[in-house]
Design a protein around this nucleic acid. Structure first.
Lengths: 162, 162
DNA sequence: GTGACTAACTCTCAAATTGGTAGTATTGTT
DNA sequence: AACAATACTACCAATTTGAGAGTTAGTCAC
């Protein structure tokens, strides 16, 4: 899709998706979090066509989620490392994974364990302010141009309440 | 990308992405959470070509994230409602939004408030078991075919530690 | 110093998908 | 009868993807 106009969308979800709103980018980020750094590691892990991998890595690098670093001068070799912004993507990965485990969880699945306790990680999203789980309380969406008290520009998510 | 083989991928992230691994699907789900239900509401909100919207809505319905419901017999009219699985997508949306706010947050942004307290929601992902924030402790990834004690088939995320 | 090998690509081209616009079907409204 | 609303379908040009072969630049084994 057209990622030009979406970049200045007032919705932070839309803005993010302009950068990683496709399957390959997210899988590359997943693999990067799993420790992969090199072109051929990604290519083999994903079974992606090299031309597409080149483009995706370049895009993610441009956008500041990955960083290209030369790890050998002779021969000249590059690797792709997660930037802080790329590392901040981990919670997104976990929530996507949680959804998949819950709703597409048949058969053998990769598991994510806490390395210290050895327990399986169950990722949940909470509101840091109220401590409530996301989705358990009603939410008010406020558009950027509306006064906060002006109901006419607000929408409510009615589907979830405590 | 090819969504056939990814459906049985052992990684829950990959499985999820087979269903909503594209920008339009995620934005449709976002709008559905914001209360939109009808074809033309989605079309106008997203500026999406109708043929593509038709296909995406059908896919999301097929996959069980949306449900098509006839809300009028005369004239025959349909609307698309979130299923429980679709509603469970909300934490993913929030984490994507959090990322965008943090890393692409310039200018006017839509805000999400707790309807009761009126405070801005700051979504964070935590491990329900340990209570630790995702990304603050080392993680062990266990492949489905490996013995849990067999190090040879395990990978560690080394990038993040407490 | 020749041949095999590795890493990180680029090139090519057919196939699939997308975007943009116009048009259709069914019904209600004036 | 004309017009509007809703939920689409049809069409076609433009873009993107997928699959595979080829390229470049070096290392290593003998």
């Amino acid at each position: 899709m057209n990622t030009e106009n979406i970049c200045n969308d007032p919705c932070p979800v839309a803005r993010s998706l302009a950068l990683f709103g496709d399957t390959w980018s997210i899988l590359i980020l997943r693999d990067a979090h799993a420790g992969l750094t090199r072109f051929d590691q990604f290519r083999k892990s994903l079974g992606i066509a090299p031309a597409i991998l080149t483009r995706r890595l370049a895009a993610l690098t441009d956008e500041g989620l990955l960083e290209k670093r030369r790890y050998s001068e002779h021969p000249p070799r590059e690797e792709y490392l997660l930037t802080p912004a790329g590392r901040d993507f981990l919670p997104v990965l976990f929530m996507i994974g949680e959804w998949g485990r819950e709703h597409r969880g048949g058969g053998k699945l990769v598991r994510f364990l806490d390395a210290e306790t050895g327990t399986e990680i169950k990722a949940v999203a909470i509101d840091e302010v109220t401590g409530a789980r996301i989705g358990t309380r009603p939410i008010r969406i406020v558009m950027p141009d509306s006064e906060e008290d002006d109901d006419s520009f607000e929408q409510e998510i009615k589907s979830r309440t405590v």
